[in-house]
Nucleic acid binder design. Structure first.
Lengths: 356, 356
DNA sequence: TTGAAAGCGCTAACAT
DNA sequence: ATGTTAGCGCTTTCAA
């Protein structure tokens, strides 16, 4: 591999000092535009590429933001988060260094140490499922932003999905389509997602003047990694077995919705004709592939990734003039409905006007 | 943020020179074990953390391997690839810097430049769908390994899935289960995956003494990003419509298999009782969630990621003694069957012995 | 407007 | 077995 050419090679070729080249290429201070142009031209001619390592050492700024995620392989969420983070990083001149721990605390620790050794300017600490976390103590040494997670003391800026608004979007769509008996199929485990969505669901019903009926809330117990769909199918089938016939159901996620599809098929309940279904997550591979296409609320992973890096970058180089804005923590990011074909207008059976 | 403590702080506290600290912590050459231990103790007491940037500048080795991927968000493949790559990197003392271009050539160029500026020691250039590629010329400057891709001139080490073996695994499972009328639902676009799998399918039939019947090969035309399942459903339904009744079908991927499930339902064909189905990809979220669970061939993304980084690391620090082994390119990585419930033994209707 | 000199934190030669 | 010295490629005073 050919010898890399550096600032001094350019200086030599241009007949100026290294300092001048540095100034020219970084747009520093005042200098003769002629010289600047000449230096720039020669730099490109020679194929000069800056050495960010040397620059980082001198400036005490690596230009790298570390991204710690607890998993990356099993859901597309991580991908979206990283994507949003990368775009924001690129826009601000940072590079992103992504590590992931597969939920192993020891691995996480060593990964974070590696990032710190690499002199990252800030760290984004992301979880894939909204929850409270104990932030590793070492992260107090470096500007850190939390994603899909928050620390009890709200010490760190954090961003999470707006769980209540998710439920409201879904429930209100069903209500607006004429549904009044709306079930909610949720998880057993007590998480911010569960409680937030339940709250939003109840609030929407209330606003529409529909009494909350606890018997319409169905709970399925899923173990991590288990096939959620099968479990949801069983839970919803036994709910139907008991004679309940809601005209709409708001599901905790898309895999649950898929279970509802399967349970409905067993009872000859047609979707959306007899039962309207709304999910959460917008897992394309499920939502777009089942029939009918699933209407679902998308989580703002891309946006959360972007927000986190922008906030982190702001911590590193505070906007000149203003004091560092302290975002109220955690920031609730709003989610959006993706409409497909699983919701139909509910035409209640009304007494038909008698004809003479 | 507290001042970072460096090698010289440790040296001062231990009453030795910086050199000695460096030797002690890096396990260099000969030195008094006593001193080494003392230095190590003091280093941890002080909370010393190495500065890899300074080290990189001095050693002309960043310890970073760049990972360029064309997408990361839409499939779980990227996650597996990155995971395998990260594990291999960690095992070899490298850190991985992942960038992705979203299939934008300009973005890709600038990302690669950023990696080079960061002085990465090597680059892994990964595609998500097996194909021939034009490798960006700049990658000739740095050790580079290709994943799920190969260059026409075989200039770079490369690793791809063994497409023929995928088809053979799937087809042979069907044959071993007693099937002889085996359809193949594939894509229209001419890619190494399509032709390789078709070849493997034919070879397996041949070996079993089953005549290849072109009318059993069904082609579905999918646009990038389109809902593949729907298209596969239509294609397979019209195939069934024409009266064909294979007892097994080998599908190009799991989304196609899901389309087959849906088409079969329309014709009251039960899976696996009347039709056995095998997919490719092992997309957990589909394969484990549809009923019956889909038997499918998993692509070795994790393994390819690992192989690529190991090969790249070998290029950077060749194994002492031996010359750099040049792997025959591209290396075909073998794939493995994940059996669920979509394949049943085919009991051909035989003339029953008449009873008197 | 330009340049000389110093130094970021570490490591590798080369003494001792 | 340990220390001295020099320098990786760049940026930043500071002086000319």
């Amino acid at each position: 591999m050919a010898k890399r050419i550096g600032i001094s090679d350019v200086a030599l070729a241009a007949g100026v000092s290294a300092t001048t080249v540095s100034h020219a290429l970084s747009g520093q201070g005042q200098m003769n535009p002629q010289t600047r142009l000449r230096v720039e031209r020669i730099a490109t001619e020679l194929g000069y590429a800056p050495n960010r390592i040397a620059s980082a050492l001198r400036r005490q700024r690596s230009g790298i933001i570390g991204f710690v995620s607890d998993e990356i392989a099993t859901t597309p969420f991580a991908g979206q988060l990283v994507l949003g983070a990368q775009h924001a990083a690129a826009a601000r001149g940072f590079l992103l260094m992504v590590v992931n721990s597969n939920r192993d605390v020891l691995v996480e620790r060593s990964q974070i140490n590696a990032l710190l050794a690499q002199q990252v300017d800030a760290i984004v600490y992301a979880k894939m499922f909204h929850n409270e976390v104990d932030v590793p103590g070492i992260l107090h040494q470096v500007p850190t932003v939390l994603v899909d997670a928050y620390d009890r003391l709200a010490h760190f800026p954090a961003v999470v999905p707006d769980e209540e608004q998710i439920a409201e979007s879904a429930t209100e769509l069903l209500i607006a389509s004429g549904h009044r008996r709306i079930a909610h199929l949720t998880i057993e485990e007590d998480t911010p997602a569960k409680t937030g969505r339940l709250r939003g669901y109840r609030r929407s019903l209330e606003r529409a003047g529909i009494a909350f009926d606890p018997s319409l809330v169905v709970t399925a117990h899923v173990e991590r990694g288990a096939a959620a769909t099968g479990i949801a199918r069983v839970a919803f089938a036994s709910f139907l077995e008991s004679g309940k016939r809601p005209s709409g159901v708001f599901c905790f996620n898309d895999q649950f919705a898929m279970g509802v599809y399967q349970a409905a098929a067993l009872f000859d309940i047609r979707i959306p004709h007899d039962l309207s279904v709304v999910g959460v997550d917008n897992l394309e591979i499920i939502a777009a592939n089942i029939t009918p296409g699933l209407t679902t609320v998308a989580l703002p992973h891309y946006e959360m990734g972007r927000w986190a890096v922008e906030t982190a970058a702001g911590l590193v180089s505070p906007v000149s003039g203003g004091e560092t804005p302290v975002p109220p923590s955690p920031k609730r990011m709003s989610c959006y409905l993706v409409e497909r074909e699983s919701v139909a207008v509910h035409a209640p059976i009304v007494a038909r006007p008698r004809r003479a």
